[in-house]
Structure formats: C-alpha cells, structure tokens
Design a protein around this nucleic acid. Structure first.
Lengths: 146, 146
DNA sequence: CCCATATTGCTATTGACAATAGCAAATTCA
DNA sequence: TGAATTTGCTATTGTCAATAGCAATATGGG
C-alpha cells in the first residue's frame, strides 16, 4: 500500500503560490514560443522595440531588468536570426531596431502571446479576475522593503 | 538631454506582471533568508517535512516540483548543515527528517516567512487582497493547456 | 514463488540565465 | 580641459532546472 501524500502545507502562502503560478506560466509560454524559435526574453525584446527606433541595448536592459552584460548574447542571437539590426545613434551608442523579418516574427509573437494571456486570465474565476493585474502591479510597483 | 524612456508596453500583460512580481518576491525572500543561511528551496523543504517523519526525497520532490536528481545536492546541503537526517524506511528508501538543530532553524524560518508574507499582502490594496491567493491557486490548479 | 516492471537515490552532463568584475572608447558636464 | 559617466563588450562564476543513465531494491501479476 502506498504511503499517502500530505497536503502541501506551503499552499496557504501567497508567496509560494506566486512562485508556482509564475513557474507554470513561464513553462507554458516557453512551450508556445518554441514554434517561433523564440524564448520569452526574445519575445519581450521584439515587443518592446516594436514602435521605437531609438532604444539602445542599455535602454532595453533597464526596462526589462536585464543587465548590460546579459543583453549581449541575447541581442547577438536575435541579430544572428535576422530579426533585429543595430543602427548607430552616435559613435558610441546603437539603436536596436526590428528588421522586416523581425516585424513578421513579431506579428506571430503577438498572436501567440495574446492568445496565451487570454487563456491565462480565462482560468481565473470571474469574481477574482479584475483584481489580478492590479494586485500584481501593486507588488512590482512598490517592492517589499528589506 | 537624455532621451526619454518609454512606458513598458508589456506592462498590460498579466503574464509579464506575474513574472515580474514573482521575481521581485523571490529576490526579497532570498535576501531575508540570508541571515539563516538558507535558500528558498531549503526553507521550503524544512517547512514541508516539519510535521512528518516519513517523507522520502522523491516525495518531497513531487510536492515541491523538484526532480529527484535535483533533490540530491539540496538535501546534501541541508544534511551537511546539520538540519536534516536520513532515516532508513526500508533497504531502498530513506525518510528525510528534521534534526533538533533543523527544528530550531525552522522556527526562525517560520518567523521570517510569516513576516514576509504579511508584508507582501500588505502591499496589495484592500479591495484586491482577498482575491489574490484564489486567483493564483486557480492558475496553478489547472495549468493553461498547450 | 518468480519475473517483469517500477521505484529509489544517485552521478554526470547540459543549458538557460543572472551576477560580477573589468575594459576601451566615447560622451557629458563642471 | 579634465573628471566622471555611459556604452557595449569580454570573461568568469554561480544558481538552478532538465536529461540520460545506473545499480539496488521493491512490487505486483501470473
């Protein structure tokens, strides 16, 4: 007879539930982006620079919370895939812009992401749904003090 | 004159906000656990096996969504720190149990985690707060379909 | 009881990703 | 002009999860 599995005593903790939900969400979105050969970070960059032609690597990193050093392999990969190009702003800075192919891939990305977000919200019961994004925003807006 | 920073167009996406909130939360809890020399996974294990003396490494992994292979270094670390012990169940399986020192550390852990969770919830406006955990549970309960 | 199957705990390796330190060139501002 | 800052990059490190594989043991159907 198999030993019984206990209820997870951590399930009452919002922080724990937040982690679990985020992990599940990331895994799912990662899987949905596989057909486009994009990672979540890649898709984030494409969507971020969609309407702009003047964002530098540093700018993107600041918005997405990615350090400059870690932007390098990310952008190199997108450039190698032909999705972005580097356009000189001055002799030091370069803007990161979408190529025509990048623009096409962005359209596919938006379709997948929109569908994904809709599916995500659909799983939340009606009475809780409108409170979800505001609650999350409250958490990221003012980080918990140390 | 500095170029202006755009609003993050990803901020409207619940999935993105979920990731950001989880990252911020994890970073904060990680920092608060530093004085105890524990990582989040360590603390999770301690809290999970607190009331049990019959959970194997595999059991813990199933509950916490950690693969067996990745449980090994985690438990080795906790054992080296004197917080857990392995108690043979049969010639194949071993239960993971708290040592007296592990029990003390657990008490400190619970204090920190409780305080942290309270702080976390306190940042969510009253009208959204009661909806937060139910919404997260709905997401983890039924993962989004591929 | 016996044998196929499953489980347990582990090793070893890989990849994604973040964090750190450091550097040369260019820009900015006092 | 000169000091401080910014940009983009290299190189390295550490954390963490995922995979494949393995030996020992346990389990359940026939």
């Amino acid at each position: 007879m198999p030993r019984v599995m206990p209820d997870d005593p951590l399930n009452e903790l919002p922080g724990y539930a937040l982690r679990r939900a985020a992990n599940a969400m990331m895994a799912e979105l990662t899987a949905r982006l596989v057909p486009l050969d994009l990672r979540i970070s890649d898709a984030s960059v494409l969507m971020l620079i969609a309407e702009r032609t003047d964002m530098t690597s540093s700018d993107i990193g600041k918005v997405l919370d990615i350090q400059r050093a870690n932007m390098v392999p990310l952008l190199n990969r997108l450039e190698a895939a032909g999705l972005i190009a580097r356009k000189p702003i001055d002799r030091k800075s370069q803007a990161v812009v979408l190529t025509p192919e990048g623009r096409e891939r962005l359209a596919d990305t938006r379709a997948i992401v929109t569908c994904f977000e809709d599916d995500l919200m659909a799983r939340i019961p009606d009475e809780h749904r409108p409170h979800f994004l505001p609650a999350l925003r409250a958490l990221v807006g003012q980080p918990v003090d140390p």
